[in-house]
């Protein structure tokens, strides 16, 4: 399974030179096994996948973690939605009353978007997930609700014996740096257990986190401790704060690594990079 990172920025896209190394597109990850592909999240990173040259399939599976704008903003500009010969399955978290279609339609309709969702030419099927297991081709996928404001799931994707876990927005414990001792009290634990690659929220430094408690995001310390507790083999920190330039990210990450010693690989997610699992 190849993991391609098309969007690693959190909150909103950036396009300045100071952010270009880690990238300015918001959350989107593509998983590839031969001719099979699935897409995790539809931030502005998904727009790059929209050309027929890049993506020759006629069926697309897009799995949304949640409906904050940095995870869906690219959906309306994903070119394949506008081809009537295409089938697009969009998965996303269920909630108690309002359907996923209705919630997506709040963005994909005037006045926020020029075309009503119902008029998008592609054959779109909306599928709601809870704590769900599903199979898409050779991908076995598990979704679980995790701690983040609003209905939000993380995904565990298994393929050919390898596991990718994707939890781009997550605040595993609110207002504390100490997680509960027991693993079964740890949000997202089952998703990330023994993952070969964990893509996890690490938007803040611990100092920044102290003034953003309850915003739904992790510090680098949270992300690393979560990876340690779950036994993940490789952590890539993602959902980079848009105010963090490349220079700031490298500096903060360097300081973090100087002060922590974990026995697994840790890095920062870079837009455009590819990891082979």
């Amino acid at each position: 399974m190849k993991v391609r990172l098309h969007g690693t920025r959190g909150s909103y896209p950036t396009s300045n030179r100071e952010n270009e190394y880690f990238g300015g597109a918001t959350s989107c990850v593509e998983l590839i096994n031969g001719t099979e592909r699935i897409i995790l999240d539809a931030g502005t990173g998904i727009i790059a996948l929209g050309s027929e040259e890049y993506y020759k399939n006629k069926e697309f599976n897009i799995l949304l973690t949640h409906l904050h704008m940095d995870h869906i903003q690219g959906l309306g500009f994903f070119g394949h939605l506008f081809n009537p010969n295409n089938k697009i399955n969009i998965y996303g978290p269920s909630t108690t009353y309002e359907s996923l279609y209705s919630r997506l339609n709040r963005y994909l309709s005037p006045p926020l978007f020029p075309i009503p969702f119902r008029d998008v030419p592609g054959n779109i099927e909306i599928k709601e997930v809870l704590n769900t297991e599903l199979i898409i081709g050779s991908f076995k996928i598990t979704s679980n609700f995790i701690v983040h404001p609003g209905p939000t799931v993380g995904y565990r994707v298994e393929n050919q014996g390898k596991v990718l876990t994707y939890i781009p927005d997550h605040e595993p414990i609110m207002g504390s740096m100490e997680m509960f001792d027991d693993d079964d009290w740890l949000s997202g634990f089952d998703l990330a257990k023994d993952a070969d690659l964990l893509l996890h929220d690490a938007q803040y430094t611990s100092k920044e986190y102290s003034s953003k408690v309850g915003w739904g995001h992790s510090s680098m310390e949270h992300a690393a401790e979560f990876a340690h507790r779950t036994g993940a083999k490789h952590l890539l920190m993602t959902h980079h704060d848009p105010l963090h330039t490349d220079e700031i990210k490298k500096r903060d990450f360097g300081e973090f690594m100087d002060n922590h010693d974990y026995d697994f690989e840790i890095g920062l997610a870079v837009q455009g990079s590819e990891i082979q699992l």
């Binding site: 701690v147 609110m174 693993d183 009290w185 997202g188």
Partner: peptide, 18 residues
């Protein structure tokens, strides 16, 4: 043991703060 449902985890987080 599977992790508790998120609603239970959040309940404990709240309980810890009150």
């Amino acid at each position: 043991m599977a992790a508790h449902d998120i609603e239970v985890i959040l309940s404990r987080q709240l309980a810890d703060c009150l």
